[in-house]
Design a protein around this nucleic acid. Structure first.
Length: 580
DNA sequence: AATTGGTTCAGAT
DNA sequence: TGAACCAATT
């Protein structure tokens, strides 16, 4: 996927970052990359189109990351792929073949009763469908998350959005897994973002400016860079045999002109070069430069970069390789998520055709919803589940009471419905009844969430008081929540302050074991997170933080035996935290 | 000697 | 799926 070996080649220009670098700014998201990762967790259910809630786990995965971004005050803009560009057809076919081969193998294993082997194969068979995208879109809408469906490649759309002003729908950076974004000329890209917000970023201007860095791009411009990428092999065109990223870079550096590179290549590789390589090459370059994108301000189809007349002529006025033109009404409708970008059919029709949700169930639920919302507003006891962001400030919503039905798809519709209306407030009584049904409820959805097996390591005997530790390279995130707060808490001191005070006390008593403390207050009043940077040295008197960190990282598997012991070994720190 | 391109392994979820 | 590894190729 993407440009072969490009990320490895660009390694010297890649730096590890945390997503909070973009706090307060708009960031574009390549929906496909998260949809695809999320689909792993429920690949069998998706492939078998099973009628269970688990099938929508990919949506929870996605929304968890959206929440992470919002937590760091980032405005996410989700971009979906639209129709396929003709020159990508070969790649698409290839992937489709591999997927269905894996699916058949998986089905065979399933028949044998080998579920493990089957599920492994199903993971290689998952496909992200427009319907899955549409189901996510419905949740994004209900969460007031900005999104756009690209007419064709999401990458091109994201590159365009990176080039326009924030006020006109632009973004400062793009989160993706696809190295194509570099070839499209996207100025700031974040790859491999994990669930804590750590990732690897590349900034194009640094690439072109760098004076000494190893693969040098000093004499490159964006067109040469794109040329190098296409030569190395991309989704639109496989490379000439024997040409990889290193030789592609060498050729472009040497001749500094794509036409010259092509003619040299023709001479040197005349036997192995496909007849129409030059033509395909120019088309591929043209896609990277002038792909069709949607201009959200003008609400119309445009080119990523304006198309010069002479280029149009060189293709005999035929730009169908960019994907056919689409009438204005249709592109807009696609962009806003109302039409399936491949079939151009209304998504509503898909629903009516039986799969995957029953619109009648959904509609009646919405009505019910409204009634309950107005009821909820009259109650003081309602609580907010989500982190702060303006769009939601005053929109407390209630979960409907869903009546089970025998309808074949009702289970599925209900499952999705729950995701569409996740910000639930039903007052204190329902609060007790609903927790597991609330997909995004903290702390389950906390950005510092840790896995159940890690969690069990640090659970206190008293379930009301828990100390959780999750680790990353240099930070340990300590997360404390407690139903009841200690009596000694001064009335005038906020809980947040109290935590900070105690932590700084600890800094002194621990002899600088803790070098930095930040506390983030969650909206759930019983939930706090502290991000505690600990030093490497372990002092026997104060094992706590560093030791917890190490245990969290390495002893996941032996949790049973070490769990209790950890609790007692670290009793001083646990006592310390339980004072909060 | 360097690069490509196929294979294998570990990791994610 | 990607990264790391390794053997074949130029």
């Amino acid at each position: 996927m993407g440009i072969k070996d490009l990320l490895r080649f660009m390694k010297p220009y890649i730096e590890t970052i945390h997503i909070n670098k973009y706090a307060g700014q708009r960031v574009g998201i390549d929906a496909y990359s998260w949809l695809h990762k999320g689909a792993y967790s429920c690949s069998m259910e998706l492939c078998l189109n099973s009628d269970t809630e688990k099938k929508f786990q990919y949506i929870e995965y996605f929304m968890h990351r959206i929440k992470l971004l919002r937590y760091y005050k980032i405005t996410p803009v989700v971009v979906f792929d639209g129709g396929n560009v003709p020159c990508k057809a070969a790649t698409e076919e290839d992937r489709k073949r591999k997927r269905s081969a894996n699916r058949d193998l998986a089905m065979a294993k399933l028949k044998e009763g080998n579920v493990n082997a089957a599920s492994e194969l199903f993971q290689r068979a998952v496909n992200v469908t427009p319907i899955m995208a549409y189901q996510l879109i419905q949740v994004l809408r209900s969460e007031k998350v900005e999104f756009v469906v690209a007419p064709y490649e999401a990458d091109a759309q994201l590159a365009y959005m990176s080039k326009i002003k924030t006020g006109k729908g632009g973004v400062v950076a793009v989160i993706t897994e696809d190295s194509d974004l570099i070839a499209y000329g996207c100025p700031a890209i974040v790859f491999k973002m994990d669930r804590y917000g750590n990732g690897e970023s590349i900034e194009l201007n640094k690439v072109f400016k760098a004076a000494t860095c190893k693969p040098s791009f000093r004499n490159f411009d964006m067109e040469l860079f794109t040329g190098m990428s296409v030569l190395a092999g991309c989704d639109f065109l496989p490379s000439v045999p024997g040409i990889g990223i290193v030789r592609a870079h060498a050729l472009v550096s040497k001749y500094r002109n794509l036409d010259r590179v092509l003619s040299v290549l023709k001479l040197e590789k005349r036997n192995q070069m496909p007849e129409d390589y030059a033509k395909s090459f120019k088309e591929a370059i043209a896609v990277f430069q002038h792909a069709r994108i949607y201009d959200p301000t003008a609400k119309e189809l445009k080119h990523l970069m304006p198309l010069p007349q002479n280029l149009l002529q060189s293709f005999d006025g035929n730009l169908d390789f960019l994907g056919p033109e689409i009438p204005q009404v249709i592109v807009t409708s696609i962009a806003e998520g109302n039409l399936n970008p491949s079939t151009k059919e209304a998504f509503d029709k898909l629903e009516h055709s039986g799969l995957p949700l029953d619109p009648i169930v959904l509609k009646s639920n919405r009505q019910q919803l409204k009634v309950q919302v107005s009821a909820a507003f009259t109650q003081e006891s309602s609580f907010k589940v989500f982190g702060s962001h303006n769009a939601r400030e005053n929109s407390t919503v209630t979960r409907p009471n869903l009546v089970p039905s025998k309808d074949k798809y009702s289970g599925e519709a209900l499952a999705l419905q729950k995701l569409i209306r996740p910000l639930v407030t039903c007052g204190t009584v329902e609060k007790e009844n609903i927790p597991q049904e609330t997909p995004l409820k903290v702390p389950g959805n906390n950005p510092f969430k840790i896995r159940p097996e890690e969690l069990s390591l640090f659970q206190r005997e008293n379930p009301d008081e828990q100390v959780l530790a999750a680790k990353s390279e240099e930070y340990m995130d300590v997360c404390i929540y407690s139903e009841s707060f200690p009596e000694e808490r001064p009335e005038n001191l906020s809980r947040k302050r109290k935590f900070q005070t105690i932590c700084s006390d600890q800094t002194e008593t621990c002899d600088d074991q803790i070098s930095a403390v930040t506390v983030i207050e969650e909206e759930d009043p019983d939930m706090f997170c502290g991000n505690v940077k600990s030093q490497e040295s372990v002092n026997s008197k104060t094992i706590k933080l560093t030791d917890l960190k190490r245990r969290g990282a390495s002893e996941k598997k032996s949790k049973k035996s070490s769990g209790r012991e950890t609790g007692s070994k670290n009793s001083s720190i646990l006592n310390f935290f339980s004072r909060v």
